[in-house]
Design a protein around this nucleic acid. Structure first.
Ligand SMILES: [Mn+2]
Ligand SMILES: [Mn+2]
Ligand SMILES: [Zn+2]
Ligand SMILES: [Zn+2]
Lengths: 142, 142
DNA sequence: TCAATAGTTTAGAATTATTATAATGTAGAT
DNA sequence: ATCTACATTATAATAATTCTAAACTATTGA
């Protein structure tokens, strides 16, 4: 979904009722310049800051999964312990900052197209994604 | 750890007491031809099949994490909902079969070396790993 | 306009994976 | 054989997520 789009209309278009919770979540998720990467916890915190009435945790989960199913969010696996989501649903690569636990999108130009030479019989490739883990390069004095 | 190595000696070398639970876990994990990819659940099932006395779940977790800390297991993130481990601790890429939830190692020759053009100030690259998701290519008849 | 209805929200309970606790057991040293 | 630090274990605790069922509401069409 694009910044400053009419979320009420957009939700209707994809067959989701434009409730105030969903509209507010759209605003928080999509009214921004750049891709947003978040955990459910991040999102709950943001929502409680930006809304007078709190949205229930169950609704946040329901809505995130509803948006994911409609193709407006994508789940990213970087940590086996919690789920990360991404408002950029296209195929793309990531940097993951192991200090801050932040995800950063790669541009097309950052990494060449990956060429897969192996073929698994009877299987087709659904996605090819690179994860670059980075961390502070401060050395402990030697 | 290599196949048919002396696990008792090996454990001692790295400062882990060679208890019967640890030795049995070594056998199950490392006495095989190929890399072993598993979840804790897989491992518990295997162990209970191959051992008369059962190993407690807490011990399985403790031991897996002990082996990971010593560099004999590596955690792989493909699914935010459970942890996968890998007896191949070197830097390498994976195929993930979304039908069977099986991980398959890539060889060096399967994917060219990834060239990262982007640089994140003050951060060094710890790892670059590719995950290729595959699934059955049966089409629903058109 | 205003019920009827289907879809939505919600609090709280349930489930699942994982970690912590603390009592018991044991490998290796003396 | 005894000691002691380290390990194992059952169980409880925690954390993330999903389920449930009752209350609520957006939309429809009489
Ligand atoms: Mn999920
Ligand atoms: Mn872990
Ligand atoms: Zn992204
Ligand atoms: Zn592997």
């Amino acid at each position: 979904m694009s910044k400053n789009c009419n979320f009420i209309e957009k939700l209707r278009e994809v067959g989701l009722r434009p409730t105030k919770q969903r509209v507010k979540m759209c605003e928080v998720l999509y009214n921004r310049e750049k891709t947003f990467h978040f955990t459910i916890n991040d999102l709950v915190k943001l929502l409680s800051e930006k809304m007078n009435q709190k949205i229930s945790l169950a609704t946040v989960y329901n809505t995130v999964h509803a948006f994911e199913k409609k193709g407006y969010l994508k789940e990213i696996s970087i940590d086996s312990h919690k789920s990360y989501f991404d408002t950029n649903t296209s195929a793309h690569h990531h940097f993951f900052d192991e200090d801050t636990h932040e995800l950063i999108d790669c541009d097309e130009s950052d990494i060449d197209k990956i060429n897969i030479r192996k073929n698994i019989t009877g299987k087709k490739i659904n996605s090819v994604e690179v994860l670059v883990r980075v961390a502070s390069d401060n050395q402990t004095q030697k």
